[in-house]
């Protein structure tokens, strides 16, 4: 055990050292959460493109940042509760004589599936790409819309 070589380490409960580790991990998580304001336990899907999903009472909205992707190079399809975005980001080659100082932008293919929390009306989905931001409006199906229930008084 490596711990034996560190005499200054605070005493741990040796009956369950893993529990102690787990407690420390939770404390660290809480610390980082406070710093970044974001829950570490909710990582992103790690699949390009990153998306933001919002909802109103009538629609779901899916947005993704896709700078330099032409709408013709994008493929969007929907089924009852899921949305798939795929395509390719192309970066046209520059002058052969150009010498690069920095090259941070990347080209490549992408494909992502997003599961929505409820059923959508697939016939009325609209997608738009402005200033490199893809914005898709997905109307909720009648069954998924919230219904106002009036309470009867007798």
């Amino acid at each position: 055990m490596i711990l034996r070589r560190l005499p200054n380490l605070p005493r741990l409960d040796w009956r369950d050292p893993f529990e102690e580790l787990e407690r420390m991990r939770r404390q660290m998580d809480r610390l980082f959460e406070g710093l970044s304001g974001r829950l570490l336990s909710e990582p992103t899907a790690g699949v390009f493109p990153l998306v933001n999903v919002t909802e109103s009472s009538d629609n779901y909205y899916v947005r993704a940042e896709l700078p330099g992707v032409k709408s013709g190079d994008m493929d969007i399809s929907v089924t009852g509760t899921s949305l798939s975005i795929s395509g390719e980001r192309k970066i046209p080659p520059e002058d052969e004589k150009a010498n690069y100082h920095r090259r941070e932008r990347e080209a490549g293919k992408f494909s992502r599936m997003i599961n929505l929390p409820g059923q959508i009306d697939t016939s009325k989905v609209e997608a738009r790409c402005t200033d490199g931001v893809l914005s898709i409006v997905l109307p909720k199906s009648e069954a998924a819309k919230p219904k106002q229930i009036t309470i009867k008084t007798s």
Binding site: E65, L66, P67, G68, I91, E94, D95, K97, A98, N99, Y100, H101, R102, R103, E104, R105, E106, D131, G132, V133
Partner: peptide
Amino acid sequence: PAVDIFETDREITLVADIPGVK
């Protein structure tokens, strides 16, 4: 923003990804 910068004899070109900026 992510940028590409390249240079030729006559000019320097900078390409930057700034999605959402009008």
